[in-house]
Design a protein around this nucleic acid. Structure first.
Length: 810
RNA sequence: GUCGGCGUGGCGGAACCGGUAGACGCGCCGGACUUAGGAUCCGGUGGGGCAACCCGUGGAGGUUCGAGUCCUCUCGCCGACACCA
């Protein structure tokens, strides 16, 4: 006989049902018109590279949890999603498997969407954005033209980073320690004519506005500040001996050390190298320049390596003291920074010091430490001090010396104060197929001509091949004069695509402009942005740049795009980051089939502080499973817990309930999801204890059950929705209001008072909250353990921290 | 090399402003129920000791009535930057 066994909590039975209902009811669809205050909750959109694993999902679970939480608290939440869909992996896959990049990309998107859905992660899909879709990249092109019109996009011949494996150029930000950020190949230098965005024009604002980002992790702000690397200094002209009227301009941040110059160094690429070199040094210099050009970035930038360089035979004159100093060339001086030439002060710059030591050049002390001049230097002294051997400036504090020397130099008309940045302009040309075409035309007669905005988009051809190999793409006519012309065949860096997607979400269906300014202002700035730290510089800096440019163009009000940033840690398994290549990813599909989506979500939140890396342990998931089963049983089968004790107290249960509301609310707010789970587990323990002490299931019990369901819902949406329905809750749990804690009900009438003698714990007493000191001492002295420790003595001193501790010091 | 961050039971991790170290969970040990249990429930679980107590947050000092928390030095791990004048 087939007996239908009661099955209890079976996640696989209920999860698809609620996913369908949420979708049908349009839960989490953001209303552009609403009485509720807006809340823009954003997770970094992914590159659709294939299967998502639970490492990726951490980001989306956090985002979903937070959306649901803010929604229950009464906000109109915008929680959109999309795909950073242009990029190299699609091309690599295409070459390997013979699939068109677009097909590969679209397949991956479909797959990832399904995986998100099976975890109960909700988005307003009506705002979905896909960067490789012409409806999106049309506006990426439009924005490029906006930058062009505003003088922020330009073409220049420059030595650029070339990745020989990916066969494309890279931005500075995409070269990590001399290697390609994507494939790890050693990057080469090539002289190419390329497109740049003038991000340096925004360097000051990008730096100064970091101060507005109080809710960003300190770490990220510091990284951005270092990357921009603003420095204040002085440019000075040094006359070159034997070249009348020729000046060698240098940049220094230490004008106070000008009297310590003992030689000059030019970058090998410096334009004056040829002319300052004397005939007898010509051969040597030429060989050195040649070698420097060929050296890989890695070798050249390595600080480990001993410094190299050669003398040019030429001399410059120190304009302040008339001294002749030799001119050298060395590759530790970079053409791309400052003026590509330095005055070398080996006494007070460690790099110059090392160079001087290597080549037997003189070292002169011009800044004395507080202990007085040291004469012979063992290393460069880089701290401030008193100026010595500095002519009229001797005796001055070196900090004041900065301005004194700078004023003097400016008065003489041989230099000027100057601010420099480490940040370079953003190289955006890519010689790849799968990207957004740069919308310009090259005409022999008219030069560079932008494609008129009404002709956008410049469509990517269907044929998968480099655009420069597709005449049907690049053969065109000039929009200005109509003569035959050639289309630009470079595509844009994909970081451009992701620099404005958060704006597109605010009006994703807009067909006449990139976004509706009114709606952008309704939703922007993003209130909460969540993603990985790996984007601390690249994406987050570029997006800030775009936001500022669009602000200046009058398209959006906010000057910063992301108010609060949270960077979550990576998920590891077996000590390694979860990834396809390591083969250690936990597939959501398997997890959902075995333990259910809710258990997976709860475990992922319980695993540790979200900002830290976490180690995924398969066995530990069972803790989350058991917890959910217990919540199910407490709610629907409370009678199944055996009564094994007595003394249940409804007031205690209420207290725990309200304390849990306080804790979970604060924890969700502060992104402490691991302790929020712990708090809910404690409430479950308290509820179970209540039942097992024979507690009645009255008002206090019902409140505990309802509260548990509501507080748990953002983390475990399916089971809570099902339980909500079964206990007769009104509407959807997802639509319910967040519970409010009553501080009076949450207050503890009694506390444990720790009793110490001489700082060592001797006893613990249960006392009424707010007990006065006199009574506390009395109670403490009455303790047997205290008397043992204290002996017959009276305490000479008492430290009393009400409701916490009393310390009796003999 | 420089700058940040982190070192807490067998494991993941709690601990507000300096005030009960180890919440919560995994694992483990013992027990109950059971035809069975990888279900469920009960109890235990930092180390030493019969106990009173003692020791214990990488290590060594210091400040304090009191230190995981503050200070100095030191070791180890992780991250960022890496000749930017």
């Amino acid at each position: 006989m087939a007996v239908t066994k009661r099955r209890g909590y079976v996640p696989q039975d209920i999860e698809p049902k609620w996913q369908r209902i949420w979708q049908e009811r349009g839960v989490l669809r953001a209303a552009d018109a609403s009485d509720r205050p807006k809340y823009y909750n954003l997770v970094m959109f992914p590159y659709p590279s294939g299967d998502l694993h639970m490492g990726h999902m951490r980001n989306y679970v956090i985002g979903d949890l937070y959306s649901r939480f803010q929604r229950m608290r009464g906000y109109e939440v915008l929680n959109p999603f999309g795909w950073d869909a242009f990029g190299l992996p699609a091309e690599n896959a295409a070459m390997k498997a013979g699939i068109h990049p677009e097909v590969w990309t679209r397949n991956n998107i479909a797959r990832a969407r399904a995986q998100l859905a099976m975890l109960g992660i909700l988005y307003d899909w009506s705002r979905e954005v896909t960067t490789c879709d012409p409806s999106y990249y049309r506006w990426t092109q439009w924005l490029f033209l906006l930058f062009y019109e505003r003088g922020l996009a330009y073409r220049a011949l420059a030595p650029v980073n070339w990745c020989p494996v990916d066969e494309t150029v890279l931005a500075n930000e995409q070269v990590i320690s001399g290697r390609c950020w994507r494939c790890g190949a050693v990057v080469e230098k090539r002289d190419l004519e390329q497109w740049f965005l003038r991000i340096t024009a925004y360097a000051d604002r990008l730096l100064d506005d970091l101060a507005l980002l109080r809710d960003w992790p300190e770490k990220v702000r510091v990284m951005q500040a270092n990357w921009i690397g603003r420095s204040h200094g002085l440019e000075v002209d040094f006359p070159v001996l034997g070249l009348e009227g020729e000046k060698l301009r240098i940049y220094t941040t230490r004008p106070d050390t000008l009297f310590g110059v003992t030689f000059m160094v030019l970058a090998p690429e410096h334009p004056l190298v040829e002319r300052v070199t004397t005939p007898e040094h010509r051969e040597e210099v030429r060989a050195y320049v040649e070698r420097a050009r060929r050296a890989s970035e890695i070798d050249r930038l390595s600080t480990e390596r001993e410094k190299t360089g050669v003398p040019t035979g030429g001399f410059a004159v120190n304009p302040l003291n008339g001294e002749r100093v030799p001119i050298w060339i060395a590759d530790y001086v970079l053409m791309g920074y400052g003026t590509g030439a330095i005055m070398a002060v080996p006494g007070h710059d460690q790099r110059d010091f090392e160079f001087a030591r290597r080549f037997g050049l003189p070292v002169r002390e011009v800044i004395a430490p507080p202990s007085g001049p040291r004469g012979e230097l063992e290393e460069a002294y880089v701290e401030p001090g008193v100026m010595v051997n500095s002519g009229p400036f001797s005796g001055l504090d070196s900090r004041a010396g900065f301005d004194a020397v700078a004023d003097h130099v400016e008065r003489l008309g041989i230099g000027a104060r100057s601010t420099r940045y480490r940040l370079r302009d953003w190289l955006i040309s890519r010689q790849r197929y799968w990207g957004c075409p740069i919308p310009v035309v090259h005409c022999d007669a008219c030069g560079v001509v932008p494609v008129p905005k009404e002709q956008l988009p410049v469509l990517l051809p269907r044929t998968y091949r480099r655009l420069s190999e597709l005449p049907e793409f690049y053969r065109t006519s000039c929009p200005a004069c109509g003569q035959p012309a050639r289309r630009e065949t470079d595509t844009m860096d994909t970081f451009i695509d992701s620099s404005w997607y958060f704006l597109r979400y605010t009006s994703a269906q807009e067909e006449t402009r990139p976004f509706d300014p009114g709606l952008a202002n309704r939703w922007m700035p993003v209130d909460q942005y969540t993603g990985g730290v790996e984007h601390a510089i690249l994406h987050l800096l570029y997006s800030r740049f775009f936001q500022k440019v669009l602000h200046d163009a009058g398209l959006v009000e906010a000057v910063e795009p992301f108010t609060r940033l949270f960077t979550q840690g990576m998920v590891k398994r077996g000590g390694q980051v979860m990834s396809k290549s390591h083969g250690n990813g936990v597939a959501p599909d398997d997890l959902v089939r075995r333990e259910g989506a809710d258990a997976g979500r709860v475990y992922e939140m319980f695993i540790g502080p979200p900002e830290d890396d976490a180690e995924w342990t398969d066995e530990a998931v069972s803790g989350a499973v058991r917890f959910l089963q217990r919540v199910w049983r407490l709610t629907l089968e409370p009678g199944s817990f055996p009564v094994t004790g007595s003394g249940a107290d409804p007031a205690l249960l209420r207290r725990r309930t309200h304390q849990t509301i306080q804790r979970v609310t604060a924890d969700y707010d502060g992104f402490h999801f691991n302790t929020a789970v712990a708090a809910l587990m404690e409430l479950a323990n308290a509820m179970q204890d209540h039942l097992q002490r024979g507690g009645e299931r009255g008002e206090a019990w019902d409140e505990a059950v309802r509260t548990m369901i509501l507080l748990l819902h953002p983390m475990a949406p399916h089971i809570t929705e099902e339980l909500w329905e079964r206990i007769g809750g009104e509407g959807l749990c997802a639509d319910a209001s967040w519970p409010t804690a009553d501080p009076e009900l949450a207050a503890e009438p009694e506390v444990t008072l720790v009793v110490q003698v001489a700082g060592r714990v001797r006893d613990r007493l249960r006392v009424a909250t707010g007990l006065d000191e006199r009574s506390a001492i009395e109670r403490a002295l009455a303790s047997e353990a205290v008397r043992r420790a204290l002996g017959r003595e009276r305490p000479s001193r008492v430290v009393y921290v009400p409701d916490r501790l009393i310390n009796l010091v003999p």
